[in-house]
Every structure is written in structure tokens, then in C-alpha cells.
Write a protein that binds this DNA or RNA. Structure first.
Lengths: 164, 164, 164, 164
DNA sequence: TTTT
DNA sequence: TTTT
């Protein structure tokens, strides 16, 4: 009915890019979102939100964001469940991103990364990155055979999970 | 940093009202949020989002919403984890509501419920509900001794979990 | 960069449906959104937010919502300006809706309205409305020649204003 | 009822700090929010959203943000109106910020600014700024007598406009 | 110019 | 009246 999420935070690890059997790119990453308030002990805690992004933005995310990058996500909350290795039902809540916004200058976000397709950065930042030629998707293994195999993620992700 | 969620959906069950050891009210409920799009099979699926609300709004929610009620939630995403009975870490993502909006006329939402405190409905709907006197919190057991004991919820919820 | 608005409120008037010269439908309406807090005098005020919706949802809005209807809007804030009749620049801020949610049962929202295209209501409410046959767009004049001519709205709205 | 806005953009000018007759700080600023899509001519346009923030955050904004700073705003849409110098009613839509997030390292955002109160930046960035001593509110004139006098802003802003 |  |  209505379902909207907006987050700004930092990636806890490099994003994880996979492909569905049909070759559709999906990237998973976790955003650490620092709370604006402190707890009883005066510490500023964080929430760790799992995010998914599909298609072209998945590849942009994989190519321009890494552990520590500051990013914004605009999307919707999605729930799903699967049975883990000992047959226990696990419930997952994650954010399916409609849009991922890169909030740091290119240099900060992707020093030593290859280049991929169109830059998601604005006019001002384009053309000032280093160019490694067009080794597209450099450093990422295509895992069509085995998408989402690690990290307790469901093994049976398929093209049916495409949001639209 | 930034963390905002807005949902509109229907309660999957009556809300669950508890109290912390210090007597602070907390209500838990799940919103079924129908997707605006259909899946490959043409079905309209739903996401089931766990929500928490504290203090006075917790009591309003418990008194005016029930299974099937249409409600809006404005809040933030929060993650936490606990170890289940067989020592397995369980990760929970839920929405901590800053504001819960009742989106149905009072009659539809709370036919046979007792009355509690100030009405969260607008001017136009106040004073037209039935009045059961002031049997506050009628039908809810105070569970100070054992908050959040059921449903696989962590047993050690305390006043430290208050959002502010 | 990031721009997200979510509103729930009531239409202050019947929506206003127009068509661009190319025949693209646009609906304008104002949502009265009651504040959740009261002012110094203890009154609950409202904000009046202008909204725009394009294409198929424009026609759904025109056919299913009317003055007083409860609706949710998920969209983005947009600014534009135009010069009024005495050459004064007027600045407009409005919400371009990606999605409009009807939050009342069909009967409440459109008693005496004709029917148009696919119902935007869920399964449960479909097929229970009166049926006027298929007099599409009944009661609305096509105004291709003169879109947005009244109400101090800019007269030069064109297909360029399409959000995507 | 429900009214939520989240924006990320850049300040078009230095923020404008004023005080109500009672001494409550208010800051006004405009965020340029670049659209994520391009128009028919292939240009990326922007929306210019007026924002207001009250109290302590008003002073933080004035001290840490300036023209060009990247910032996030989480708030609600508010409308008001006033009569301009030639008696014409002007309608204003603006965002009242509950929270303003500084999205750039301190150095980028406030090179040559004085210091004020508690730093709104996280642990990592604290203590690495230059220190000008405690010339609080340096460079800003207190304008209790005449808040909001310029820029076509209503002259009669008062403590009644406090959001809570 | 505003809704319940 | 607009930012990078």
C-alpha cells in the first residue's frame, strides 16, 4: 500500500555482485546507519541494514562503492524467508533500492577500482577518474551457477525475485 | 545518519502490549503491506513488517487498533540480534515508530474495545464512541515480570531499549 | 540527489484532470494534511500540499477520488516558476506523485462517479461498485487545447513537464 | 496525518540565521536537489527547496554549513501564506527539518567559519578542526528586532511558528 | 482557494 | 534568487 525507506550510511563491506541464471545483475550490501542519538551509556550505536539493488545500478554500486563508502538508498522494505541448513525458518527484512546515491567524490569511493559503463557521478566529477581501459566488471566473478551461495543467503534466488 | 521509513498497511494480529520493568509501555505489531505490483504469476504479494511503538502511543495502538486495522507508521529502521534457545544468533530488523496513524473511522477499528486515555482520532470522531467507563487497559495483562517472553522475542528487553 | 515525500491527507476539492497537447493525462489536486500536534491555541492546523500525477494514475485519481477522499501520496518535491498576469514571478513547490494510494473503501470515495479502466482498489473491493458500462472518462472534458488554463496555473504546461 | 520529506542536496547560499523575539534561533536555507533523470534536452535539472530549522540545529547549520555544502534533511512539508508589499497573497511551501545531516567532512563544509557549541560531526571528525576559541555565533548579527525582514520573507514570524 |  |  505505501512502503518507503530512505537511508544514508556507510557500506560495512564491499558490495557483493551476483547474476541470476538469466544474467540479471543483483548487488547486496549492508549500510551502517549511525543513530543520531546516544544510548544510556552515551555511545552512538548504528543499525545495519541489508540492501539489494538490481540491474544497471547493481553494477554501478559494485564498481563505485566499497567498504566505508557513504551512500544514500531510496527504496522499499521487503520481507522474505527461507529454511537454513538445519531446517530452521529464517526471516529476512531488507531494503530493495530504487535508487542508490553516491555521496562521496569519486576518488574517495573507488580509488583502486576498475571502470564500468556510465558514471553515476555528476558532470563535475566525470572524466577525472583514472582510466583502466574497458575491462568491464573487472575483479568480479560471474556466478550464474551459484548466486547468493554464501553468507547464509538463500541459494534459490532466481529471476522471480526481480522487483518489476 | 539518515533513516526514515513510512508504511501504510494492515495489522496481521491484535497488537501486543507489554511493559518494561520500569513500567514503560511498548506495543509490538506486524503490518502487512500489499505491494503495488504483481509477481510473475500475477499475484499481489505483501511484505510483513514488524513494528514497535513506545509510551503513550503504545497504549493508543493497543486500544484502538486490532487485527485488520489500516494504519500508517512513520519511523526508523532498527536492527538488533539475540541468541535463540539453541544458541543461534538471530538478526531482527524492525521499524521503531515515531508516529502511528489510524486510518479508519473509530468504529471500524475498535468496535468492541475498551477506552483508554486521550483519543488519537481527530475532533470529528471523538465523543462518538461507546464508553465503557475507565477500565484502563482492559483485556491486557500487565507483564512487567516477563516482557516479550513469547514469539521468539528476546526475553531481556529492558528500559535500555527506549529509543530516547 | 535524494528527494522523497510521503503524505496522507484528504483532497480539498475534486481532482482536476487535464491533457497535454499530446494527449497525456495529468491530474492536479491538493491534499489537506492535518498536523499531529496543536498550535499555541490548542488547534490542530493543516498543511495544504499541491500534488500532480501523470498518465494512467491521473485518470484513476480523477475517477476514484473526490473532495474529502483520504489518499496517500508517494513522490518527490518539484519546484518551478512562472510569471503571473502582472509580470510577477511566482514560485511553486509541488509533489509529483509516483504513486497515489486510495485509503478508503470504494463506496466512500466515489459514490456517484463513473467507472474508468482498471480499478486501483485491491481484490476485495473490486466488482462491488455500481457499473455504468464503459463510458470512459465520463463527466470530464478533454482540454487538449487549453491545459491548465485556470486557477493561476501556468498556461504553457506541455509534454516537456512529463517527469520521465 | 502523515507528512514526511527526505532530501539530500547542496546549499545554494550560506544559511540565514535569525532569532525570534524570544530569542529562539531559526535558520533558513535552500537546498538544490539535482534530479536523477534528465529532461528532453538531456540536461539534469534541479529542484530548489526552501528549508527551515529551529533551535540548536539552527545554530549548528549556521556554523557548519555554507554555500555548496552537501546536506541531508529529514522533516515535514509545511505551507503558509502572507500578503506581499502590494497586497497580493503569496503561498509558501517549505520543509521544516527535524534533523539536518552534514554529509561532508568538516574541512570541506566550514573552512573559514568560527566554532559553535557541540560539533554535529561524528567521533572521527571531531577535534581535527581548527579552533578559533569560543567566539560563538561569529559573523552573525542577532536580529531579534527584525527577524525575517528581507528576501520577501514575512516580517511577522514569531514564537508561534515554533513547530513544537 | 482549502479536508474530516 | 539558485548548488557541484
Amino acid at each position: 500500500m505505501m512502503n518507503r525507506v530512505v537511508l544514508v550510511g556507510r557500506l560495512t563491506k564491499d558490495p557483493d555482485l551476483r547474476y541470476t541464471p538469466n544474467g540479471v545483475p543483483v548487488a547486496n550490501f549492508t549500510l551502517a546507519v549511525n543513530r543520531t542519538f546516544t544510548n544510556q551509556q552515551g555511545e552512538r550505536e548504528a543499525d545495519f541494514i541489508n540492501c539489494v539493488v538490481w540491474r544497471r545500478q547493481a553494477e554501478n554500486v559494485a564498481n563505485y562503492l566499497k567498504k566505508g563508502s557513504l551512500a544514500g538508498v531510496d527504496g522499499r522494505l521487503q520481507t522474505r524467508s527461507y529454511d537454513d541448513q538445519d531446517g530452521k525458518r529464517v526471516y529476512v527484512t531488507e531494503v530493495v533500492a530504487d535508487n542508490v546515491q553516491f555521496l562521496e567524490p569519486r576518488s574517495a569511493a573507488s580509488q583502486d577500482r576498475g571502470n564500468f559503463g556510465e558514471s553515476p557521478f555528476g558532470e563535475g566529477q566525470r572524466n577525472q577518474g583514472s582510466s583502466y581501459g574497458d575491462q568491464r566488471n573487472q575483479g568480479y566473478t560471474r556466478t550464474d551457477e551459484d548466486p547468493f551461495s554464501n553468507d547464509g543467503q538463500p541459494i534459490d534466488i532466481s529471476d522471480d525475485d526481480l522487483p518489476f
